[in-house]
Every structure is written in structure tokens, then in C-alpha cells.
Computed example of a mutant assay.
Amino acid sequence: MARRTAILNNKGGVGKTAVAMRLAEALARRGRRVLYVEVDAQGNATRRFGVRWFEGMQTVNEAVRADTVGIVRKSIHPIGWREEYADRISLVPAWLELDDRIMEAGIPGSHLRLVKGLQGADDDFDETILDCPPSLSHLTQLALAASHQAIAVTEAEQDSIRGARRVLEFIAQKSYALHNEDLKVTGVIVTRMDTTRSVDRSQLTSAREIFGDLLWDPVIPRLNVFKELDTNGSPITRATGEKAGAARASFELLADTFEKRSLTV
């Protein structure tokens, strides 16, 4: 079984998907086999990985709806990048219909459907990254129930930090209800940090006080190159400009921290 990591925040727009994707990419560059499961109906990672929807495409929606052991295998697709390491990243895509699964929240045991679907499906991978929607509702609970660890992503901004705190509180108080009492928050990643802004520096100090040793280094800087990569759906190895090296280095260092601080499965 792969090590399964849910990446989330209760607030949207904090750069969660960008961090999840670039972390997956950095791990793949190190030879790790990564299954990226998009559990967010926005489908941003699906587009950025260069995967296009087609009629009859099996996505995470169909896997969850089927409620069948190992069914996620049928929803695993290669990504569209052409880098030499791209064949070590596979994607379970998401599409708008995934939101239909929210209405199943009241069905007993429905939060375990992704657990069941992943059973045996990610055995050939080293890492499974579960990219959660910006909430703590049913879709996120599907991912948390299936995960070994959770990582919160936040900006150095008050509302984002509050969203990350809610993640920690929810997992501490509700993991038993997800039938996953061993679930741990192993890290908090600060992204889009602008060290030239005094408010960012102040909020980072607050984040360190709140999260303590859970806050990981490095802090990911705010760089225009990241926005360009996300817009174009490009791998970080295609980054250009004077900040391209800094962008790649930040996620290589983050991959170091991930490997040192993650739970052993």
C-alpha cells in the first residue's frame, strides 16, 4: 500500500492544489511512484496535469459512486506531461459531477467508499496524494478516511491560518467518526510568502506560534513563475526566468522535509 497523504485547508484560494502538485512532481523526480487523487470537483489539478475529459472517462466520481473494493484502478490515467519522470505520476481525475456525491453524506458508511475503492488500487505506488476541496464536508471526509496523514496548506494570512487550525481541530476531534483514529496531521506548509511585506512576516510569526513544530520548512515563496506554470499547466522543469531556479529549489527542499517528517507506513 502507498503512503496516503491528504492535503487540505478549510479555506479556498490558499494555493493548496499548487503545493500538492509540485510536491508530487518533486517526489516523482526522485524516483517515487505517485498516485494523485483529485477529490475536488473544480478539477484544477486534472487540467494542469494535461488530462482532458472524454465521454465515458472514469473519474473519482465513478469510483466513489461504485462503492466497490479496488474500483479506483479503473479511474487511474497517465498525465499529459512529457517529462521523463511524468510516467511516475498517475492521476485519478475529478470533474464537476463529483459534487453529486455530497448528497450521499447521510448514508451510513458512505465516508468509507474511497477507502474501499483504493484498497489494492495503489499497491504499486509509493505515495498517494489526495487533493481535497476547500472544506471539511463529505468529499474531504472521504479523503481523510482513506489517508494515513494530513498536511494543511496555508498562506501567511489570518483567514488562511484559521482554516488550517480548523483542519487540526477537526482531525483531532472527528477522526474516530471517520473510522480512522490513527490519522495524524504531520505538517503545515506556508505558501505564497512575500518576505518584503511586513504583514506577511508578522503572520508567519503568528503561524509559528500557533503550529509550533508542525510548521514545515521551507516556506514557499510568492513567485510569479508559479502562477504562470499553473495557468499553462506546465511542469516546474519548464519554468523560465531568473526565479525558475528558486521555484524548483523550494519544492526540492519541501520534498526533503516530506520524506523526513511523514509517517512511516
Results as ranks from 00 to 15, higher is better:
residue 143 A to E: 05
residue 232 N to F: 15
residue 16 K to C: 04
residue 137 S to H: 15
residue 66 A to T: 06
residue 49 F to N: 05
residue 173 Q to A: 12
residue 123 D to Q: 15
residue 70 G to S: 07
residue 255 A to I: 05
residue 74 K to V: 12
residue 75 S to F: 02
residue 138 H to W: 12
residue 256 D to Y: 04
residue 85 Y to P: 00
residue 136 L to F: 11
residue 196 T to Q: 06
residue 70 G to H: 06
residue 110 S to M: 01
residue 120 G to A: 09
residue 208 R to Y: 02
residue 119 Q to A: 14
residue 142 L to G: 01
residue 62 E to L: 05
residue 84 E to Y: 10
residue 46 T to I: 02
residue 137 S to F: 14
residue 18 A to S: 12
residue 48 R to M: 07
residue 44 N to V: 10
residue 39 V to A: 09
residue 91 L to D: 02
residue 227 K to C: 12
residue 227 K to W: 14
residue 234 S to T: 13
residue 188 V to W: 02
residue 74 K to N: 13
residue 73 R to S: 15
residue 219 V to T: 09
residue 140 T to I: 11
residue 199 V to G: 09
residue 15 G to H: 08
residue 243 K to D: 14
residue 207 A to N: 10
residue 5 T to A: 07
residue 145 A to N: 07
residue 178 L to K: 00
residue 112 L to V: 08
residue 234 S to W: 13
residue 190 V to L: 11
residue 260 K to T: 14
residue 141 Q to C: 12
residue 86 A to F: 00
residue 240 T to V: 10
residue 60 V to A: 03
residue 238 R to I: 05
residue 237 T to R: 04
residue 225 V to Q: 00
residue 142 L to R: 02
residue 105 A to F: 09
residue 82 R to M: 12
residue 96 L to G: 13
residue 112 L to M: 13
residue 250 S to N: 04
residue 20 A to Y: 14
residue 235 P to N: 08
residue 90 S to H: 14
residue 186 T to A: 06
residue 215 L to C: 10
residue 160 S to N: 11
residue 48 R to A: 10
residue 47 R to F: 14
residue 41 A to G: 10
residue 229 L to V: 10
residue 136 L to M: 15
residue 52 R to F: 09
residue 246 A to L: 14
residue 30 R to L: 04
residue 89 I to T: 02
residue 252 E to K: 11
residue 77 H to D: 01
residue 63 A to N: 04
residue 124 D to S: 08
residue 147 S to C: 07
residue 69 V to S: 12
residue 207 A to L: 06
residue 6 A to H: 05
residue 193 M to C: 13
residue 10 N to E: 13
residue 25 E to N: 12
residue 77 H to K: 09
residue 31 G to V: 11
residue 168 L to D: 06
residue 222 R to A: 10
residue 43 G to Y: 00
residue 167 V to D: 04
residue 104 E to C: 00
residue 121 A to Y: 00
residue 23 L to F: 00
residue 70 G to I: 04
residue 123 D to T: 10
residue 251 F to L: 07
residue 13 G to P: 09
residue 154 T to G: 07
residue 261 R to K: 11
residue 25 E to I: 06
residue 4 R to K: 15
residue 154 T to C: 15
residue 112 L to G: 08
residue 155 E to P: 11
residue 19 V to E: 03
residue 95 W to F: 08
residue 132 C to S: 03
residue 244 A to D: 05
residue 9 N to Y: 03
residue 254 L to F: 08
residue 76 I to Q: 05
residue 52 R to P: 06
residue 172 A to R: 15
residue 232 N to P: 05
residue 81 W to H: 05
residue 64 V to L: 00
residue 23 L to V: 05
residue 212 G to A: 12
residue 14 V to Q: 01
residue 113 R to Q: 05
residue 234 S to R: 13
residue 172 A to G: 15
residue 176 Y to C: 09
residue 94 A to Q: 03
residue 255 A to T: 01
residue 150 A to R: 01
residue 170 F to P: 06
residue 19 V to P: 00
residue 127 E to A: 06
residue 83 E to I: 07
residue 81 W to M: 09
residue 264 T to K: 14
residue 34 V to N: 03
residue 130 L to E: 01
residue 187 G to L: 03
residue 50 G to A: 09
residue 101 R to V: 05
residue 247 A to C: 08
residue 93 P to S: 07
residue 118 L to C: 05
residue 52 R to L: 07
residue 104 E to D: 15
residue 75 S to V: 03
